[in-house]
Design a protein around this nucleic acid. Structure first.
Lengths: 319, 319
DNA sequence: TTGTATGCGTTATCAG
DNA sequence: CTGATAACGCATACAA
């Protein structure tokens, strides 16, 4: 493992000159530059990133905090993040929390311990108040609403999005509407419920089902839904995967969609399109990209940024 | 940012003593230990991970190399990897290659530059011969077959798996069998084709369709498939997602499955189960977990390991 | 255009 | 039990 000093000795120059060549600084004579390059080749020099990191104080890494890496919902975010990070020569450290607050804290501790330069939070149990205590150690960007000024937020405006989704349902003639949500107390879920009660005339508490995250949950939901005496005519799902699980189970039971119950999803996953799921298309990949870019900007001195994204209706056959 | 020297000064001990307290070494008097703890608390000490890393030469990081982070196929692998890594206090650096060889090289260069301790390769364009040139810089584990002795491999035995899948189809009375593969020249695809020609009496070159990766590809396939004059009676898909795209499109066209064409998937994704897809269940999460564990073992001096995993038939309604 | 000296924050060695 | 000092490998202020 030849280091910068070995190269200097071999090329008969100072370490500073080697460092300058390495960093493509000007003010190095052609001849010495060539000697250094020759020495690097001969000794098989490989720059040690750890040393660079300690010396500069920059890690070129960002931690991405999310509950589950195998949930397709996060796929598009992460894809956008990964592309943007790679383009800017940054590395993504992934931290899976399984919705555990203790894991979120450990992940954000990376910031404190100078292991990463910034943090991107796709889902959090932690209050913004607590999250702000980490802010002193580096920029934080979240994909949820309600962030304070110190924390960047690139998010779907869930209130506006659900209002527009509900209007799509209403424009198709559905008035009795139910809603399927993931976590009952998350900020986005609260915004969705607000939209529901603001916009749906026949809103009912018991037509909001919470705790549905996966396609398997969607399958379970079918049973629950069908056992209900008074049922809504349409269901608005906060996740395409839950909707698809429900749709598959309804097909198995030979229950006609949308005749028996209409369905509107949320996300816009390709697999949903294959089954004709009507859905609200969310620009998740773009959000991922912007989350990285805003974090990068903050690392370069920019101010935190808040930006709400809008969704659009993607026509299907379940309405 | 108080450092170890500040603590030493504040507690009126040497830096060595502080380091010993930090690392819970014995041979530190109770009294000094207490003074150090007090100083750390008072100055808000946070250990700098970068310095630790440079000093010890261990990064506690592993790079995970995969083509796409948003392809559900990799979700289970990554989930297993993430759980195992977290348990052992390791961080996962994700590198998305989009099947580009140049990206794979850059990712493996992290090993050379001491930015990670090991590499886990879930899919690769790179030959094993080239991959071995990185082996000197740290352990490498792959999830594909055919690795040399120096590289660990935890993989599905695609040959055996496809043989057993084909036998499942045959046991249901299907003799005219076609196969849908992702990449035509990957080691796993070659093994699958070998199994096909070894086991299927009526095997035909033109009944092997390659280049199908996503559910959207599955949708496209329906058109291609139906335009064929002579069609197989059953299709064996190398991916549940492609199979689901195909299934959705067939439903849209009101073509009966399995009456018109039987389908067998490969993976065992929950969403497939919701739609009754018959499939071969692959233990991908377990593979992910073992990939990490074998890498960790190698970092602690163990020899590379090769282990083939088997799949099992998961009953559905598409056969 | 070049080089010397110092710092980044730890751990490890070795002497006491 | 304790501490001074030397690594680890690089970047950079400052001087020449």
């Amino acid at each position: 493992m030849a280091n910068i000093r070995d190269i200097a000795k071999h090329a008969d120059v100072s370490v500073t000159t080697v460092s300058r060549v390495l960093n493509e600084h000007p003010y190095v004579s052609k001849e010495k530059r060539a000697r250094v390059h020759k020495a690097m080749k001969e000794l098989g020099y490989l720059r040690n990133q750890q040393a660079l990191t300690l010396s500069t104080g920059k890690t070129q890494r960002v931690v991405v905090i999310l509950p589950y890496m195998d949930h397709p919902y996060y796929g598009f975010f992460v894809n956008g993040l990964a592309k943007a990070a790679l383009e800017h020569n940054y590395r993504l450290v992934m931290w899976q929390t399984e919705y555990k607050l203790s894991e979120e804290r450990q992940a954000l501790d990376l910031l404190k311990h100078r292991e990463v330069d910034g943090a991107i939070v796709l889902s959090h149990e932690m209050s913004f108040k607590e999250m702000e205590t980490y802010r002193a150690y580096g920029p934080i960007a979240v994909a949820t609403v309600g962030a304070p000024e110190t924390i960047s937020s690139i998010h779907v405006d869930h209130y506006a999005s659900f209002v527009s989704g509900i209007r799509v349902l209403q424009s198709h003639g559905y008035e009795q509407i139910g809603m399927i949500l993931s976590r009952s107390h998350s900020p986005s879920s609260l915004a969705r419920q607000q939209a529901y009660f603001d916009e749906v005339a026949h809103a009912r508490e018991q037509w909001i089902w919470t705790g549905y995250l996966t396609s398997e949950d969607g399958v379970r939901l079918a049973e629950t839904f069908l056992s209900q005496k008074e049922r809504p005519r349409a269901l608005f799902f906060s996740s395409d995967y839950v909707a698809l699980g429900f749709l598959g189970e309804m097909q198995r039971r030979h229950i006609a969609i949308p005749e028996e119950v209409a369905m509107l999803g949320f996300d816009g996953h390709p697999i949903g399109r294959a089954f004709g799921l009507s859905t609200m298309l969310s620009p998740n990949e773009q959000i991922g990209r912007r989350l990285f870019e805003t974090t990068l900007a903050e690392m370069n001195g920019a101010q935190p940024e808040t930006h709400g994204m809008t969704v659009s209706y993607q026509v299907g056959t379940t309405l």
